[in-house]
Design a protein around this nucleic acid. Structure first.
Length: 447
DNA sequence: TCTGGGGTCCTAGGACCC
DNA sequence: TCTGGGGTCCTAGGACCC
């Protein structure tokens, strides 16, 4: 062991300050903004297909609803307890996220959007004694302008800002803000927070650390980082440095180019026939094309997968994954659809007396490149001159009239009910669809 | 009946090269 | 019996995140 780790105050003297701000129970809070009746009742939001609870308000957590809990297991309880349940409404949440970030930028120009409900802000230029006031003002302004309640954690590194945010969320007396650039708070909270709360320490790492007798965050901070590398890799070593106030994770103000892209969905009900399966992957490929075009990226392959459910224990299992190569990079939906269908065609197996009941299918690509920078094929070149304007026209139509207004006939126009995702309890797209705007009349709010 | 979707990074190990 | 010493690149799988 090396000697005791240097204390924060010895290291950072007037250095960086990073804030992590996030929306409390973000998806639930978005629903609450547009329906005041939800204010103090338990609310949960479900994952795609109304499968699992992925956001819960404090009232819902108090009822014992766990993160990721399958909805069918708690449906009766929710009914009995008056829990308001929503399908996920990503259009709404994405728009609310953009609004909160717009507010953040009025407080700090350098913002890294980390996820749909979390952003890092650079507060290094804010004087130490002003940081707390600024954080409180930020929370109040976001609440007033968007309706979203938030918590703010401040620290000299991202890992410490995350930790501070966790403290701010779990200790109500702090008023939603915790500043770990304050040495007193730093010394106190690192000793009183469990190591499992540290950003980057998951189940596997936690088990290893517990076996080493590490219990608090301070225990982890005081480990010698070099030997830790053997069991927790460079990731663990980096975490220790970050906990000591030595920054290893820069603020990423410009989002990195995405490296892969996937569209995968569980079916609303099990699928046994080839036509339905093909139709679902064609729809996923259509969506894949939209996502690639939005980012100006192209792919030279499509990996198609489909499989049965591990929960169907008494049924025969089958899992298929195959990659279809393309002659050159593209983001043309028609080409992607053709490839995705081919992926099913060449792997399909006719069922016997005990058919496979598939529950999920998807399309995946990796190694994406900007389309204009990709080399052209010598043989089998695709017609970019026609495809580009055609796809652009489709995208414009879908932007104006809603996704799915124009779809390639090749994607199939048959019955969707068997496979398309369930959203039986979705709220209106209050902020992005004119027809779904909330209506207010004479002081009365009628969503 | 009903159990999500979409990412990133890291490591180990094999293939191949000089 | 003995049988180099590096390199690079690729892939699969693990771990973690929201």
């Amino acid at each position: 062991m090396s000697g005791p780790a240097p204390r924060l105050r010895d290291r950072i003297g007037g250095g960086r300050a990073i804030a992590l701000i996030d929306g409390n129970s973000f998806y639930c809070s978005c629903e609450r903004v547009f329906d005041p009746k939800l204010a103090s009742v338990p609310v949960i939001v479900l994952s795609n297909n109304d499968g699992n609870a992925i956001a819960r308000t404090a009232e819902a957590k108090a009822l014992g609803i766990r993160m990721g809990e399958p909805y069918f297991k708690i449906r009766d309880m929710c009914r009995a307890q008056g829990v308001r349940v929503f399908s996920s409404n990503y259009t709404l949440y994405g728009d609310m996220s953009a609004r909160t970030n717009a507010v953040y930028r009025t407080f700090a120009p350098d913002v890294e959007i980390y996820s749909i409900d979390e952003s890092f802000l650079d507060l290094s230029d804010v004087r130490e004694r002003d940081r707390m006031a600024l954080a409180l003002d930020l929370r109040a302004t976001v609440r007033a302008w968007t309706g979203i309640p938030t918590c703010v954690g401040i620290g000299p590194t991202k890992t410490l800002a995350k930790l501070a945010n966790h403290v701010a969320k779990t200790i109500p007396e702090l008023g939603g803000v915790c500043d770990l650039t304050d040495p007193v708070a730093y010394d106190h909270w690192l000793c009183h927070v469990h190591v499992g709360e540290v950003w980057g320490i998951g189940r596997a790492s936690l088990a290893k650390l517990e076996a080493m007798g590490v219990d608090s965050v301070a225990d982890l901070r005081d480990l010698d980082p070099r030997p830790v590398r053997k069991s927790l890799s460079v990731v663990g070593e980096r975490i220790i440095h970050e906990l000591r106030g030595l920054s290893c994770l820069p603020l990423e103000l410009v989002p990195a180019r995405r490296k892969g892209c996937a569209v995968t969905r569980s079916f609303a009900s099990r699928v046994e026939d080839r036509a339905t399966l093909e139709q679902s992957v064609a729809a996923h490929a259509t969506r894949l094309g939209e996502k690639l075009r939005r980012d100006g990226l192209g792919t030279d392959h499509v990996t198609v997968f489909y499989h049965t459910s591990e929960y169907d224990r008494d049924r025969p299992q089958r899992s298929v994954s195959t990659t279809v190569r393309l002659p050159e990079h593209t983001n043309d939906s028609l080409t992607l659809i053709k490839a995705a269908r081919l992926g099913v065609t060449k792997t399909w197996r006719e069922p016997g007396s005990h058919p496979w009941r598939y529950n999920k299918a998807g399309v995946v690509t990796v190694d994406l490149v900007p389309l204009e920078m990709s080399p052209r094929a010598l043989i089998g070149q695709l017609d970019r001159e026609r495809s580009g304007p055609l796809m652009a026209a489709i995208d414009v139509c879908n932007a104006r009239w809603g996704r799915g207004a124009v779809v390639p006939a090749r994607a199939g126009l048959v019955e969707r009910r068997a496979w398309s995702t369930k959203f039986e309890m979705r709220s209106p797209r209050y902020t992005t669809q004119v027809t779904e705007l909330p209506v207010a009349c004479a002081g009365k709010w009628r969503p």
